[in-house]
Simulated assay, not measured.
Amino acid sequence: MEYKTNVMRLLEKNKIPYQPHSYADTDAISGIEVANILNQNPEQVFKTLVTRAPSRKYYVFMVPVASELDLKKAASSVKEKSIEMIKAKELLPLTGYIHGGCSPIGMKKQFQTVIDCTAENFETILFSAGKIGYQVEANLENLKGLFPYYFADVITR
């Protein structure tokens, strides 16, 4: 793959091994379509969601593309009474990313990140490389230095 996103550059700069994946030449929109096109298990492909609590704090959640974020569990995992998804138009000014291309790596500001505990079932997970059409696959243990995260059960079962 010739194209490099800022996420890929950050991974390389920090000497973190990753595998790039591209679906840029397809019309895939949903995460499940992306997983299918890349011939990957949808439970191993994660989407990055940004939320806000009444405390005005922002939180990032990474959940499998075929799953839904459980807002009650998510709020509990960050010790808030409630949280809500931010509006798509708020995403770019807040994170530097657009809807569909949001990555936990390289956001304008670092937010507390919670990864659904199902990620622990895999050696690597795939997530957005910061641009629609591009994903990176990496070992989460290797990413600890790039952004702080912890695991919690945050999806609807």
Rank of each mutant, 00 (worst) to 15 (best):
N14S: 15
N14W: 13
N14A: 15
K15Y: 04
I16A: 12
Q19A: 07
P20S: 07
H21Y: 15
H21D: 09
H21K: 09
Y23K: 00
A24C: 09
A24R: 10
D25S: 14
T26V: 02
D27Q: 15
A28E: 03
I29E: 08
I29A: 03
S30F: 01
S30C: 05
G31W: 02
V34C: 01
A35F: 06
N36S: 12
I37T: 01
I37M: 03
L38F: 05
L38N: 08
Q40N: 03
Q40P: 06
N41I: 06
N41W: 11
P42C: 00
P42Q: 10
F46Q: 02
F46N: 09
K47V: 01
T48I: 04
V50W: 02
V50Q: 02
A53K: 01
A53P: 01
P54C: 09
P54D: 13
S55C: 12
Y58W: 07
Y58H: 14
F61H: 05
M62G: 09
V63S: 08
V63P: 06
P64D: 09
P64Y: 00
A66C: 10
A66I: 08
S67A: 13
E68V: 03
L69K: 01
L69Y: 05
L71M: 10
L71E: 12
K73D: 12
K73F: 07
K73C: 11
A74L: 13
S76K: 15
E80D: 12
S82F: 04
I83R: 07
E84N: 14
M85I: 12
I86H: 10
I86V: 14
I86L: 05
K87R: 11
E90D: 15
L91V: 10
L92R: 13
P93N: 12
L94K: 13
T95M: 10
G96C: 08
Y97H: 08
Y97N: 01
I98Q: 15
I98H: 14
G100A: 03
G100W: 00
C102E: 11
C102A: 11
S103I: 07
P104R: 00
G106T: 01
M107F: 09
K108Q: 11
K109Y: 09
K109I: 03
K109A: 06
Q110G: 11
Q112N: 09
V114C: 01
V114A: 02
I115S: 09
A119Q: 00
N121H: 15
F122K: 04
F122H: 06
T124D: 03
T124M: 08
I125C: 11
I125K: 00
I125D: 04
I125N: 02
L126Q: 04
L126T: 03
F127V: 11
S128V: 07
S128G: 05
A129Y: 10
G130L: 07
G130A: 12
K131G: 07
K131P: 01
I132Q: 14
G133P: 04
E137S: 10
A138I: 02
N139G: 11
E141C: 04
E141Q: 14
E141D: 14
N142L: 06
N142S: 12
